[in-house]
C-alpha cells in the first residue's frame, strides 16, 4: 500500500511540471508585449517627454504634472463626448436586443425564420469598422444617396450637411455602434433567457400571467447578471471607441471636436510622440476600465466557485440541454 501511494504521488508530480511548459508561451509573450509596455506607459506618464520638430524634450521627471494637464484640459470634454455617443447607441441597442431576445425565445410566438434573422442582424458585427465609417461618410455626404433620396422625395430642398451638425454627426456614429452590436447583444440575451428554468414560465402562464408581467417578474430579474455583463462590457467597449469616429471625421472629431473620443485623443498624443501626456491619458483610461472590469471579473469567476463538475454544466450544459428543446439557431 504505502509503496503504491508513493508511486502515485511521484507520478503526479512529474506530470505537473508540464503545466508550466504549456502556459509558458502565453506568459512570455504577455510579459514582453503587454506587461512591459503597460508598466513603461505608467512610467512615461510621470515624465515630460515629447518632440518638437526634430528636437527631443525630456525625459524630465515632473511628478503628476501630465495628469493635471490632461484632467484640467481637454480630456473631460472628450470623456463626455465618448459617454454621450455611447449612451445614444446603447439605449436603442439594449431595448431592441431585449425585445428580440424575448420574441425569439417565446414558446407562445414560435417565430419562424429565426436563423435567417439572427444571421442578418449579427452580420454588421463582423464588418470592418473603418470601412463602415467610410461607407456612412459617403452615404451621408452632401451628394450621397441619403441626401439624394431626401431631395427626390421633396423632404428637403438643400442638402443637409450631416457632418457639420454636432447632433447628427454624433447620431450617425451612435447608429453605427448600434448597428454593429445589437445582433451580438440579442444572441447573448437569448442564451441567457434560455438558461432560465422553463418551468417558471409555464407555471406563470398557467397562473394566468400576461406576457408583459412574466417579463417583468421572471425574465428581467433572472436575467440581471447577464444584463449587467452586457452593460459593463459595452461600457468598456464604448471607452475604446476609436475606428468609427476617427475615420468618419478624418481624426479631427469634427464638428468642433464634438465627436472626439478618449482614444482619438490618446492617438493624437501617440502620433505626435508626446509620451508623457499620452501615458497620463492611458493610465486614466486604464483605471476607468479596471474599475468596470471588476464587475465582469466577479461575474465570470462566480462560475468557478461552484465545484468543478458543476462549473462545466453551468457554462455549457444548460445551453446544450436547451438546444434540444428550442433550436439555438
Amino acid at each position: 500500500m504505502p509503496e503504491k501511494t508513493e508511486r502515485k504521488t511521484h507520478r503526479s508530480v512529474s506530470y505537473a511540471k508540464w503545466g508550466y511548459f504549456f502556459i509558458a508561451p502565453f506568459f512570455a509573450v504577455f510579459i514582453v508585449f503587454q506587461l512591459i509596455p503597460l508598466l513603461s506607459t505608467f512610467y512615461y506618464s510621470l515624465f515630460e517627454y515629447y518632440r518638437v520638430g526634430l528636437k527631443q524634450i525630456g525625459p524630465n521627471f515632473v511628478y503628476f504634472k501630465n495628469y493635471i494637464e490632461v484632467l484640467t484640459g481637454e480630456m473631460p470634454e472628450y470623456a463626455l463626448n465618448t459617454l454621450i455617443i455611447w449612451i445614444m447607441g446603447f439605449i436603442p441597442q439594449i431595448l431592441v436586443s431585449m425585445l428580440l431576445a424575448v420574441w425569439f425565445t417565446s414558446y407562445r410566438l414560435k417565430l419562424r425564420g429565426q436563423r435567417f434573422f439572427k444571421t442578418v442582424i449579427y452580420m454588421p458585427n463582423l464588418i470592418m469598422a473603418s470601412a463602415l465609417a467610410m461607407l456612412f461618410f459617403m452615404l451621408f455626404s452632401p451628394v450621397g444617396p441619403v441626401n439624394q433620396m431626401l431631395t427626390e422625395w421633396g423632404i428637403i430642398d438643400q442638402s443637409i450637411l450631416f457632418f457639420n451638425i454636432p447632433i447628427t454627426a454624433r447620431a450617425i456614429i451612435a447608429f453605427m455602434n448600434f448597428l454593429m452590436w445589437f445582433g451580438n447583444t440579442t444572441i447573448l440575451l437569448m442564451a441567457g433567457i434560455m438558461g432560465i428554468d422553463q418551468n417558471l414560465f409555464e407555471t406563470a402562464q398557467i397562473d394566468g400571467a400576461k406576457p408583459f408581467m412574466i417579463f417583468i417578474k421572471i425574465t428581467l430579474p433572472l436575467l440581471m447578471p447577464i444584463l449587467v455583463y452586457v452593460l459593463i462590457t459595452s461600457m468598456i467597449g464604448g471607452i475604446q471607441m476609436f475606428d468609427i469616429p476617427q475615420v468618419m471625421t478624418n481624426r479631427l472629431g469634427t464638428p468642433d471636436r464634438t465627436t472626439m473620443t478618449l482614444i482619438m485623443y490618446l492617438n493624437r498624443h501617440l502620433t505626435s510622440k508626446n509620451l508623457g501626456l499620452g501615458g497620463a491619458v492611458s493610465v486614466i483610461v486604464f483605471i476607468m476600465t479596471s474599475i468596470l472590469s471588476v464587475f465582469v471579473y466577479s461575474s465570470l469567476m462566480r462560475n468557478y466557485r461552484i465545484p468543478r463538475e458543476k462549473a462545466g454544466t453551468a457554462l455549457f450544459g444548460k445551453t446544450k440541454q436547451k438546444q434540444s428543446e428550442v433550436e439555438v439557431i
Partner: peptide, 17 residues
Amino acid sequence: MIMMVPTQVSAVGFIQL
C-alpha cells in the same frame, strides 16, 4: 484579471518597445 485590459492603454510603451 487581465482579460478586460484594452490594448490601447499600453500603446505608449508598446510603440517604444
